[in-house]
């Protein structure tokens, strides 16, 4: 089986009584192992809700989610925590590094929670910190790093346990365009060299153009889908812009500018 994530007819309602919002409307799709998928859509389209239910932070109202062969609906509270710890890696817009811990301690924390021994922890730390270029920042605290460095540290933390799936929620949201580009290069490296499967939510077409596949959400449903195939990133970007215009999402094109910015 090559599918790492399989989502079937997932529906999510918010609210109760007469005020009910349908955030996800019978969504179905799957993600293959080793792929880099972006989810795009305007504000309120359901991107974050989708990420939340996949990351087990929120519960689905209907439908099923299977990650790495495990149905999330069947897991109890402890199993869900263990699942997040062992199978998922997270990268957030605000980095979510713990301000009281050094970069090294932040990166190795998921291994500590898995009760991995000291020797293996040190070996894994060396591997990911060198791969992500944060090896000389390990003894620093997050407040001593730039935004780009912090996000690279967060990437290192996300992949140190070799998770089945790395979930990124607007990872470039707090970065300038130069650091955004550098971070996307890091994502490509993680995906191609380290074999990480990445599912990223973004509303930035430039960022989305780095992915192999882009899912467009509108009103809680998959409205369109793009595959890169053999296309250049610039071409992918133009495709994204075209779909976005058709989608009618002002926010989507907001950060993109023209194709030269890619």
């Amino acid at each position: 089986m090559n599918e790492i994530l399989d989502i079937r007819n997932v529906t999510k309602y918010y609210g109760s009584g007469s005020v009910v919002t349908k955030a996800l409307d019978s969504i179905s799709f799957s993600v293959e192992k080793g792929s880099f998928t972006a989810i795009m859509g305007a504000s309120g389209s359901g991107k974050s809700t989708l990420l939340n239910v996949i990351s087990t932070i929120d519960r689905v109202s209907a439908g099923e989610i299977m990650i790495n062969g495990m149905f999330l609906n069947d897991l109890n509270e402890d199993e869900l925590s263990a699942f997040r710890r062992d199978q998922l890696g997270f990268i957030f817009q605000e980095y979510n590094l713990l301000d009281t811990l050094t970069v090294e301690e932040n990166i190795t924390l998921p291994l500590n929670l898995k009760r991995v021994g000291l020797t293996e922890t040190q070996r894994e730390l060396k591997r990911v910190s060198e791969a992500l270029g944060v090896g000389d920042q390990l003894k620093k605290f997050p407040y001593e790093l730039s935004g780009g460095q912090r996000q690279r540290a967060a990437c290192a933390r996300a992949i140190i346990t070799n998770p089945a799936l790395v979930l990124a929620d607007e990872p470039t949201g707090a970065l300038d365009s130069k650091n955004s580009k550098a971070l996307m290069q890091t994502f490509i490296m993680m995906n191609r060299s380290l074999g990480s499967t990445i599912l990223m939510v973004t509303h930035d077409p430039v960022v989305g153009s780095y992915a192999d596949r882009v899912l467009f959400l509108k009103d809680g449903r998959i409205w369109s889908e793009l595959y890169r195939g053999e296309r250049e990133r610039r071409e992918m970007y133009r495709e994204i812009m075209t779909v976005s215009s058709a989608l009618g999402g002002d926010n989507l094109a907001g950060n993109g500018g023209d194709g030269d910015a890619v």
């Binding site: 990351s55 932070i57 509270e77 402890d78 869900l80 925590s81 263990a82 699942f83 997040r84 710890r85 062992d86 998922l88 997270f90 979510n96 590094l97 713990l98 301000d99 009281t100 924390l109 998921p110 929670l113 933390r157």
Partner: peptide, 15 residues
């Protein structure tokens, strides 16, 4: 905020 990060990293409510 810090415990939210720990939760997302897979630390269960018991731990």
């Amino acid at each position: 905020k810090r415990y939210l990060v720990l939760y997302r990293l897979g630390m269960g409510s018991g731990e």
